[in-house]
Nucleic acid binder design. Structure first.
Length: 580
RNA sequence: UGGGGUGUCGCCAAGUGGUAAGGCACAAGGUUUUGAUCCUUGCAUGCGUUGGUUCGAAUCCAGCCACCCCAGCCA
């Protein structure tokens, strides 16, 4: 995939939900009204390439891209790659792929914080020269002790008052590779007694003799997040730097760094160097992360689930990763609609999984063609049909959208129905097939169960039913048949396997501290594999889509990865709502 | 217990002094050859709590309570 992704900003998968007011939209509207940034709105999505994107990231992606789009603004994709020890190109590629899949187009080329390393180094020199930064020899452990605690102020580093000249020389030597990892660091000189621990002389640069996935071995010192993020935003001409709540305490540092640098030199280094209007520094605004009940979105735990084979990789359909959800059958529109419906606010909240369920059902109901697939087959012999009976029944692909066309479904003497659609003696409220009872075969005839054939152990082997030939497309005479069941021709149907997925955890909050190990609360039935399923032949047609509503069962999606082995495999994205 | 935040229906969430939007869930009806979809109706005399200001407060003020985040040379 090329980095340039400058197609239409409104590409496939665009959401169609209505928008609602939130504090970020309001703030942007106000800033526009005040002409704060000369009419510009420029956001960015800044992932660290140290893992796969998940549903929580989707909220941030949707927010940043849509808020820019709504205001004729721009949104950059910037990899915040300042910690090469944890990052890799694999993640960079996966992230780009996921964002494009969601249907968003970032502004221009993909950005990397690492491509600003030279500027960052130069600005650090500026801070050293103005006495705002110094090289500190304290080890990480010592620095922690000097930092104080939440209730106790910190102590100044013994190196805090080094001369500018000495700091300059030391910093250059750090960059030149003269010191081992951790020997010293560059720190901002702010206030060791600040009640905000982030302001107690935070580290700006640390020594790491390690290869970087973008810059190779060019650098052996790497800037920290706090130092890098604000300057990267400023360089890219970002106006609204949106991030999550835990960075709230970092905002004073974000502002401190930018305000202690020469603004003209920032502008000169930025994409706005030739911009006529006033150059205005970016501002950080925080919003609450997305949390979902019954799911884990912690990167560390997600990685552990992959590494310990609790799931089958980052794209396991049970994973809340975008890669997993895609394979599960989620559509970009459903995820966008979900993010919009969840809203953006500052209060910690846990969204009910039911909202996600609704979003995917809503989209799939409108856009999926219908088909019939029997998950747990029970043979039914239609006794009054000829041995070679073959009738092609015409059925609509969608009950309320005729533009989706029609298809032909073969009916033969032997068909299969789902085991759960037959009960020898009906339980209360049961309205499907029972012994001596009648039921409608969807899109076909009404049949009557005349005989139940059982094996020696009483197991039901097959049903013998007679067809009322006068019921195709019309109601039976003189009686009411309320049940309708799906079916598949046993001779013409396509055998396939199906994966039935359910939530991975049995408790609402698997990330709770009360739970020592998430393995203790795993749902043993999160995956049920069925290997004897049979679907109507149309799903194997040339040009057939990969997503269907298997009538009366749910929404399913062909798993191309598994189907590649030869046997067709479908994943159940989500079952139909069942009010029974 | 220092600092920063947040508290509006079971779950999200609008609302920024004029008398509580919307969505999800749920419940009850209606349509239906998917127990689906769709439609209709219901669902906070109440906005963490206690006081105060005001003709009028979820909105302003004060106190209290609960919960979340921060002591990486992670982001």
């Amino acid at each position: 995939m090329k980095d340039s992704n400058s197609g239409s900003a409104h590409s496939q998968g665009a959401a169609d939900s209505s928008t609602s007011s939130n504090f970020i939209r309001n703030k942007i509207a106000q800033d526009l009204k005040d002409n704060k940034y000369g009419g510009r709105v420029h956001t960015r999505f800044p992932p660290e390439p140290n893992g796969y994107l998940h549903i929580g990231h989707a909220k941030s992606i949707c927010l940043n891209f849509t808020v820019a789009e709504e205001n004729s603004g721009l949104c950059n994709l910037r990899f915040d790659d300042t910690n090469p020890a944890k990052e890799s190109q694999e993640y960079v590629d996966a992230i780009k792929n996921n964002i494009s899949w969601l249907g968003f187009a970032w502004n221009g080329e993909v950005r990397y914080s690492s491509s600003y390393f030279a500027h960052l180094y130069g600005f650090a020199g500026q801070l050293v020269k103005s006495g705002k930064a110094y090289v500190c020899d304290l080890s990480a452990d010592q620095a922690r002790e000097f930092r104080g605690s939440l209730t106790q102020p910190g102590k100044n580093s013994p190196n805090r008052d080094r001369s500018v000249e000495e700091n300059l020389e030391l910093f250059e030597r750090m960059r030149a590779g003269e010191f081992v990892d951790g020997a010293c660091s560059l720190r901002a000189k702010i206030d060791m007694a600040s009640p905000n621990i982030n302001m107690r002389d935070p580290v700006l640069y640390r020594i790491r003799h390690i290869e970087h996935h973008q810059t190779g071995s060019e650098w052996c010192i790497y800037p920290t997040y706090d130092y890098t993020h604000c300057i990267s935003d400023a360089i890219e001409g970002i106006t609204h730097s949106l991030c999550t709540l835990e960075f709230e305490d970092h905002r004073p540092l974000y502002d401190w760094i930018l305000h202690n640098l020469d603004i003209e030199s920032i502008k000169a280094a930025s994409d706005l160097a030739d911009f006529d209007g006033d150059y205005v520094l970016p501002e950080q605004t925080e919003f609450a992360k997305l949390k979902l009940n019954y799911t884990i979105v912690g990167k560390r735990q997600l990685k552990e689930m992959v590494d310990t084979n609790v799931v089958d990789g980052w794209d396991d359909p049970r994973m809340p990763t975008l890669a997993g959800m895609r394979r599960r059958g989620f559509t970009p529109a459903s995820i966008r609609n979900f993010c919009e419906s969840v809203g953006v606010a500052r209060s910690d909240s846990v969204v009910d999984l039911g909202m996600l369920d609704h979003a995917i059902r809503d989209d799939l109901d409108k856009h999926s063609p219908r088909a019939m697939c029997v998950l747990r087959p029970l043979l039914v012999v239609l006794t009054n049909l000829a041995e070679d009976h073959l009738e092609n029944l015409d059925m609509a692909n969608h009950p309320k959208n005729e533009e989706m066309g029609r298809r032909s479904v073969p009916l033969s003497k032997q068909i299969v129905i789902d085991k759960s659609d037959f009960e020898e003696v009906a339980s209360p409220g049961f309205k499907r097939l029972v012994a001596s009872g009648e039921v409608r075969l969807r899109g076909a005839y009404v049949i009557k169960c005349d005989n139940v054939v059982k094996g020696e152990d009483g197991e039901i082997l097959e049903l013998h039913c007679s067809v009322d030939m006068d019921t195709l497309g019309k109601k039976p005479e003189g009686r009411k048949v309320k049940g309708v069941i799906h079916w598949v021709s046993r001779t013409k149907g396509i055998p396939l396997s199906v994966n039935l997925y359910d939530r991975l955890f049995t408790v609402e909050n698997p990330e709770s501290k009360d739970i020592e190990d998430f393995r203790d609360v795993l749902n043993a039935d999160s995956l049920i594999r069925l290997d004897d399923c049979m679907a109507e032949p149309s799903i194997g047609n040339e040009g057939a889509t990969d997503k269907y509503q298997f009538e009366r069962e749910g929404y399913f999606c062909r798993d191309d990865k598994e189907s590649a082995t030869g046997r067709l495999v479908f994943n159940r994205t989500i079952p139909l709502r069942d009010s029974w």
